[in-house]
Write a protein that binds this DNA or RNA. Sequence first.
DNA 1: CTTGACCTTCACATCAGTGTTAGCGTTCGA
DNA 2: TCGAACGCTAACACTGATGTGAAGGTCAAG
Lengths: 136, 136
Amino acid sequence: MRIGELSERTGTPRRLLRYYEEQGLILATRAANGYRHYDEPSVDRVLQIRGLLDAGLPTRIIKQILPCLDKPRIIHFPDATPEMIGTLERERDRMTRRIECLTRNRDALSEYLDVVCPEGGPVGGTVSAPVSGPVG
Amino acid sequence: MRIGELSERTGTPRRLLRYYEEQGLILATRAANGYRHYDEPSVDRVLQIRGLLDAGLPTRIIKQILPCLDKPRIIHFPDATPEMIGTLERERDRMTRRIECLTRNRDALSEYLDVVCPEGGPVGGTVSAPVSGPVG
DNA sequence: CTTGACCTTCACATCAGTGTTAGCGTTCGA
DNA sequence: TCGAACGCTAACACTGATGTGAAGGTCAAG
């Protein structure tokens, strides 16, 4: 597919897709006319990149770990230097810490919401006055 | 404690602690001479902030959710407007998505590392040559 | 008085992302 | 065939956010 379709299917501005390519996050083959062509997995790949960026990973790291994440376990280790492995392990551990931190705080937030707004958010409904006084 | 001690105990540059205060993430009482004074929980609070920032949450959101995360379930809902609740719910869901994304990719990365480097990372040890040829 | 910790403020670095401009080629439908 | 929509490159600038550096001054203790 061309850039326009990828843009629509991923909800990502064309501009940004070119930017990701510039950053080495995605690849595109080129047609004779110079147009970028993307294969089907590119859709997931872009979404994956967006997710990781949103989770705080810098492009530099994403670029490094992306090749290790392909579904078919294609052998990537020929070019895996010890330093590279070390980097990946550190990033894996950092991701784990992130997950723990997020989970902890998400659960706390969730618990809070359960208290202030038990079951089925009435938020967005017709609320004329804040429940600030003594209720009931 | 003063800023220097908090800095040491959290591994956070003084400059950054002042920045967090400027952004409304932490509070400090002031001594007569203008020095900032922090209480004991500030240590955890700073670490929590660092963790959330690292996980991709912007300061603006952290500032909003932090008060809901205090261990003693102090009643915060007097000032909880419906919009605020909505924001918190959206952020909770976003955190969940982040967790899922991170977990998925962390597991894939982990699996990859298990393949290229099964059990007990020898990385960092004395590795004279990369294991690029057929092993065993 | 010197040293070190603290204060404020301005400026800067980095990074992701965006808008815009200018110039040009391609695709596709009316 | 014409024009709109789409694509390309390259560049420039700029936002918004996190994070730093350094200047210049204050405070407290040896």
